[in-house]
Computed example of a mutant assay.
Amino acid sequence: MDRLLANGTVNAAQSGEGTPLFLFHSLLSDRASFDAIVPELEKSFQAIVPELPGFGRSRAVEGGLAAVADRMAEAVRDAAGGAPAILLGNGYGGFVVLQMAIRHPEIASKLVLADSGAAFSEPGREAFRNMAKVSREKGLEAITDVAMRRLFAPDFQAQHSELMRDRREAFLRTDPDVFRSACDALAGLDLRAELAAVKVPVLVLVGEHDEATPPPMSRELAAGLPHAELKIIPGCAHVPQLQSPRQFLGALKDFLI
């Protein structure tokens, strides 16, 4: 069931009953990236999967990552009735969740930050600047191969042609201006000095072969958080919930109880 949150600005799918568990998608994907794990999660939780601002039917917001985090915090309060919720973010969604937890400390009871971080290396920043530049000059089609490589290793792509066709189509539906704005925000982001403010338990997950947000970023993130546990998911890249749903759910299990 879809519902509109935050004064009609955020569209979200909702299913199941229990403690609210929000799932925030990555920049190079959409909320369908959680389709393989929601049926299991909704057995124990109220699973809420929003479309981030500017994606799907959620309205875009200006003001960088802080403004995105504030809009999503409003949506979380709306759906959870003001009670603390469990927030899970993958990739860009993880950066949004981390920024939310810093700016709105009461919003969450637990965080899961999957394939995310607090800051990119200079090569990582340059990759976002390049994607923004090329997409501005030639359109999203020109960076689709790069985007897919950041999501999945080449051997996985070769073995899952139907999934890759679906993921390419999803990426090409992204609003180009929203994409470029997010690239600019991530290229300049550095939340390392603010990690100590996050007091809730955090599970940091990362795919072993993630090229977009490599494991060293997750190690740095976990080390800077007061109450964090790090798990590396073998054989996976940037979207482990799509690549290996059972492994991803297994990594979550004990933390979510």
Rank of each mutant, 00 (worst) to 15 (best):
D2N: 13
L5E: 09
N7M: 10
T9A: 09
N11I: 06
N11P: 02
Q14D: 11
Q14P: 01
E17H: 12
T19Y: 01
S26Y: 00
S33L: 00
S33W: 01
S33H: 01
D35C: 02
A36K: 15
A36D: 14
P39Q: 03
E40N: 03
L41W: 04
F45D: 01
F45S: 02
F45P: 05
F45R: 03
Q46H: 09
Q46N: 12
A47P: 07
A47T: 12
E51P: 00
E51C: 06
L52D: 07
F55S: 10
R59T: 14
A67T: 06
A67N: 11
V68W: 15
E74Y: 00
A75N: 07
A75H: 08
R77M: 06
D78Q: 02
G81R: 05
A83T: 09
A85K: 00
A85F: 09
I86A: 03
L88I: 10
N90R: 02
G94W: 04
G94K: 08
M100V: 07
I102R: 12
H104I: 02
E106Q: 13
A108S: 12
K110T: 10
A114Y: 04
G117E: 02
A118L: 14
A119Y: 06
A119M: 06
S121A: 11
G124V: 13
N130M: 14
A132R: 15
K133S: 11
S135M: 05
R136M: 09
K138N: 10
L140T: 06
A142E: 10
D145H: 00
D145C: 01
L151K: 01
Q159F: 01
H160D: 03
S161I: 12
E162C: 04
L163E: 14
L163Q: 12
R165W: 02
D166P: 02
T174H: 06
D175P: 07
A182H: 03
A182M: 09
L186M: 14
L186G: 10
A187S: 15
G188C: 06
L189E: 09
R192Y: 00
E194I: 03
L195V: 07
L195F: 02
K199W: 00
V200W: 08
V200L: 06
V204C: 07
V206D: 15
H209Y: 12
A212F: 01
P215G: 10
P216W: 09
M217F: 12
M217S: 05
R219I: 06
R219Q: 15
E220D: 15
E220G: 01
L221P: 04
G224K: 03
L225M: 08
L225G: 11
H227E: 14
H227K: 15
A228P: 00
E229L: 04
K231G: 00
P234L: 05
G235N: 05
C236M: 13
Q243G: 09
P245G: 11
R246A: 15
L252T: 09
D254E: 15
F255L: 11
